[in-house]
Amino acid sequence: MTVGSLLIWALVIGLALYVTRAHPEAHGVRSARWLIIGGGVVFPTTVLTALLIYGLMLIPELRATGDIDRRIEVAGEQWWWRVRYPQENGEAVELANEIRLPLGERILFRLSSPDVIHSFWIPSLAGKVDMIPGRITELVVEPTRTGTFRGACAEYCGASHALMNFQVVVMEPDAYRDWLAHQATLARAPTAEQARRGQQAFLANGCGACHTVRGTPADGRLGPDLTHVGSRLGLGADALPNDREALIRWIGHTGEVKPDVRMPAFGMLPVDELAALAAYLSELE
């Protein structure tokens, strides 16, 4: 495609130079007419038809859902991503705001939304597909190289639409299996004293009403699963980096970071309690 574009560009520039520099005098009516019909009608129509046919021939293969290696369910919610990895035993590992994929496998994304229309888009890997309330849309992706790619919501969905992003990590299949097995495990108990206080604060302040930390009494389903939140690359659907300072800012000033977010800010908590919460969540790797 790039080579073709360059050839056409060179041809157009060459013709422009030919008529303005090499032969600036008036050209015959007949030759000019043939140039207009040939270069302005026949040539672009032929090239565009060839490109269209080539593109259309690729589509059935890209959309085929028959030979899928793996399914991942993603729900777009104001303004984060609920990601479920169905397992062979029928259960699913639910994570959030980050997607990991094994290299070279065909993956079927099943996309949905419980609230408004979102659009799931990983520009480097595939085209965008709308997530429509009441429907399941599908997207097939086959990553061909490892790396970290940015994903985003591509349909305006409310005040914090621009802060509804995620990262996609394409990993070697073995590393992916290890990662997913780890993500399926229960949260590890806090070890440091500050983190233990953080866990008590987490439960005492009702965080578990909305968030799940598997292996603890926190089993809320409204917000993102936090069982391994410390291992993620970003916070609040990639609105902040994932470190303790950002966690404190997120918990204490949630609405300032992400306008209209449903999670209430806990800025009323003492500073050391916020720091303990951040320590606890950071340890959940």
Binding site: L48, T49, L52, I53, L56, M57, I59, P60, R63, T65
Partner: peptide
């Protein structure tokens, strides 16, 4: 009309190459 002729053919081409509802 020439432009519309080609555009109409382009629309129909998609049905030739995409044979399913997927």
């Amino acid at each position: 009309s020439g432009l519309s002729f080609v555009a109409t053919l382009f629309v129909a081409l998609s049905v030739v190459f995409i044979e399913t509802c997927e």
